[in-house]
Amino acid sequence: MSQESLDEPQTDQRPATLPWIVAGLLGLSLAGLTAWVGWNNYDLGTLDRPGPGFFPLLVAGFLALTSVIALLESRWARFSDETIPWRRFGIAVAIILGGALALPYIGFLAVAFIGGTVLAVLIEGSFRWRIPIAMAVMTVAVWLIFEYVLEINLP
């Protein structure tokens, strides 16, 4: 190993300029929306009696300011280069988001069983019959805890 490679910091950091610009622009948009909606819909009141629209305007200003700072800092922003396995990410997000949206329609038992099985297969890497069996036991156990121990009705 050369001396240079020993002296150089072992870095796996990559520029995060684009994500930071996106974050800054999203922040600016949100600030604009907050200010516009607040200005047009809520009473600002006066300094000695501020209304419900007063503080949101300050928040919008702070949001805009920090978004501009993010845009300015984007040039130096870095992140750890840990590759995202996009297929796995897509499936996991679909399960977490889909499960949340489907819960009121198909109920907790179905969502937890189906979602849990897909996640377990994703983690394990392949389908095995023990997975749906274990997930069925887990689903019923969680349901029983909420229904009978915590006395909270799940859909």
């Binding site: 949340a100 819960l103 997975i131 887990m138 969680v142």
Partner: peptide
């Protein structure tokens, strides 16, 4: 194994978030 633990914890999260205000919106 993680394949049992992690889906169980996700299911607990779903149930817990919903149970707080009985709201699917909170889950989303």
């Amino acid at each position: 194994p993680n394949w049992i633990l992690l889906p169980t914890v996700v299911a607990l999260c779903w149930a817990g978030i919903y149970a707080f205000r009985l709201s699917w919106f909170d889950l989303a």
